[in-house]
Amino acid sequence: MISIDIAGTRFNLRAGAIIEHEGKVLLHRALSDDFWTLPGGRVEPGEHAAATVEREMREELDEQVACGPLLLLAENFFNYRGQPNHEIGLYFETRLAANSTLPLRASPFVVHDAGAPLEFVWFDRGQLADLRMLPMEVKDLLLNDKRNLRHVVNRG
């Protein structure tokens, strides 16, 4: 995975999936976190970001997905558990396979990823306003029906 410690800062290249179904969006979080984010993971060396999303959804959810357009490029600078981070996040519109059973899964559900428990929840779009989501622009993107590629820089 592309995660490197440089000059006291952890650099990550992350790809995320925007998965929506019948007015709901799939979000996840580590059980120890107080914020929600789009499912995904770190890009592997030599792997393009859309392939990362497809691989991560197979690994975490046992789901076949297809990536559509890139909708958000986020440069994120933040501290996580005392560690300064610089993350490039690439977020893609993502389609479930026609025979997917993911929308039928009772929500919330927990998946273990490399031993870490991740909680997944299908949220109605109307619930998003009350959630703490990172990066912050994801919420605005999900609440907006007009979607064009956005580039944002978050410090803090």
Rank of each mutant, 00 (worst) to 15 (best):
M1S: 14
I2P: 01
S3T: 11
I4N: 09
I4Y: 03
I6Y: 15
I6D: 13
G8N: 02
T9P: 00
R10H: 11
L13D: 14
R14T: 13
A15N: 10
G16E: 15
I18W: 09
I18M: 07
E20L: 04
K24Y: 06
K24F: 04
L27T: 02
R29H: 10
L31A: 04
D33S: 12
D34K: 07
F35V: 08
W36F: 05
W36S: 05
T37W: 00
G40A: 03
G41A: 10
R42A: 13
E47P: 03
E47C: 06
V53A: 07
R55E: 03
E56P: 09
E56C: 06
G68L: 05
P69C: 10
A74E: 06
N76W: 00
N79K: 03
N79S: 06
G89F: 08
G89R: 11
T94K: 02
A97I: 03
L102R: 05
P103F: 08
R105N: 05
A106S: 13
P108A: 13
H112M: 12
H112A: 11
D113F: 13
G115E: 04
P117L: 03
L118P: 00
E119R: 07
V121S: 08
V121M: 05
F123N: 04
G126Y: 07
G126H: 09
A129S: 07
D130E: 15
M136L: 15
E137R: 09
V138N: 07
K139L: 12
D140V: 06
L141I: 12
D145N: 15
K146S: 15
N148D: 14
H151M: 04
V152N: 00
R155T: 07
